[in-house]
């Protein structure tokens, strides 16, 4: 099963990024083969709708689950349409979260915040 985690750096030793949409990288990890790769989040520097674009990037990786501390409503909508399940991370460590996920210890993420509404009409 392929899963994704927002990370602060391109390493398995990395910490989980506190913000999904603004995370610099996503770890794409295969729980069976233990293969992994990092995908740059090109949405992170966008002025608005970062969560939506980030979700698009993750969804395009054909993952089945996302492990994240929090997630905006808009991104959650994208994941729902893409049949990607969201789990709440319980520590900062990428490794520990993967382990916990494999053991079935991570809870589903239930609350989504209202998001940034990143638009700025009438200016930049």
């Amino acid at each position: 099963m392929k899963i994704a985690i927002p990370t602060d750096s391109q390493s398995m030793e990395s910490t989980v990024c506190a913000s999904f949409g603004r995370a610099p990288y996503f770890l794409i990890y295969d729980t069976e083969t233990k293969d992994y790769a990092f995908v740059a989040n090109t949405a992170a520097s966008g002025t608005g709708g970062a969560g939506i674009m980030a979700a698009q990037i993750v969804a395009d990786q054909k993952v089945s689950a996302l492990l994240t501390p929090r997630c905006g409503q808009n991104a959650a909508d994208v994941f729902q349409s893409a049949d990607i399940k969201l789990y709440r991370t319980n520590t900062d460590s990428v490794k520990d979260n993967i382990e916990a996920f494999v053991k079935g210890e991570l809870p589903l993420l239930a609350d989504f915040h209202a998001g940034f509404h990143g638009r700025n009409r009438g200016g930049r």
Binding site: T47, G48, I52, M53, Q56, A59, N74, D77, A82, R119
Partner: peptide
């Protein structure tokens, strides 16, 4: 359309276009 939108108000997943009117300008 997804690529054109500078506000990231559109996403395309599972063969479906999703529109986010709260970020649309």
């Amino acid at each position: 359309c997804v690529q054109f939108c500078n506000y990231n108000a559109l996403a395309y997943v599972n063969n479906k276009l999703i529109i986010f009117d709260d970020v649309c300008h």
